[in-house]
Design a protein around this nucleic acid. Structure first.
Lengths: 138, 138
DNA sequence: ATAATAATGAGAAGCTTTTGCATCACTAAC
DNA sequence: GTTAGTGATGCAAAAGCTTCTCATTATTAT
């Protein structure tokens, strides 16, 4: 139940927050921009403001409930944090996003951070390319 | 000589282009935002417009002369492409940027892209953390 | 030099994201 | 069950950052 997750994160379970969380949990699209979230909620008949969507997503990010990604082209999207860290493969034509994890890469990243004297807080790896579907000729 | 590089890239060697390229080549700061470039040029007495800086940087990116990065927090910076690809470690406190390459990570990225059926066009890895200097207590 | 073409600077416009503020909702004490 | 106090919301305005428009200027080829 979403209210519990919110409470645990130190956030009051208000309607907009619950709705945004539900949407992120149930949407087909795992990766959504703030605008996407806003439109989905409006279409579902919710009376929510875009500013609130931004506020809520920012709070969720601060609470660790969601992650925010800035993809090539300046597109920024949010996704629910469930379980472990993962990285992304993004199609530059159709925007399709696939996820993956690679323990060896993870391991080497930790080493590099240590080697450079950094206390790592976050890391992300984006592979851009043209997906199978988009490679086909017109 | 910068004019040659520009010609090779299929761009006319106009004054603003040469100046931007020179700046990227000679600046202390390898990573600069469009605003940074603009201000540096103004301070050097150049009469350049911000719009031109954006145009030129975008052209350079298209021509492969520079790379553009979108760091956490939405900051986007440009850097000169010299030689091979590299990745970045970024201090989330002071903004310090260090570069690195790791052949094993590169190799694994290629494999992942292939495995996912993607024709890889680009890839980037960002490690965020707190650098040695910023870890010290106030 | 001169004509044709492309690039520039300045400001306007477009997006995305944040802020200010009056209103509304919730919590907790009476 | 009311009522005060706190925090959250929606709307509109504002703040970035980036792109576009267009008259002017520079560049290239003749």
């Amino acid at each position: 139940m979403e209210s519990q997750d919110l409470k645990k994160a130190g956030l009051k379970a208000t309607l907009p927050r619950v709705r945004v969380l539900q949407l992120l949990e149930n949407s087909e699209q795992r990766h959504m921009s703030a605008e996407d979230v806003y439109k989905f909620l409006l279409d579902s008949g919710e009376d929510v403001g875009l500013a609130t969507v931004y506020r809520v997503l920012t709070q969720f990010e601060a609470a660790g409930l969601v992650s925010r990604h800035h993809f090539e082209g300046g597109l920024s999207v949010f996704e629910l944090n469930e379980g472990r860290h993962h990285d992304h493969v993004v199609c530059v034509k159709c925007g399709k996003i696939e996820e993956f994890t690679d323990d060896i890469i993870e391991e080497r990243q930790r080493n590099i951070a240590k080697l450079k004297g950094f206390d790592m807080t976050d890391h992300c790896l984006y592979i851009y390319g043209i997906c199978h579907g988009c490679q086909k000729p017109r």
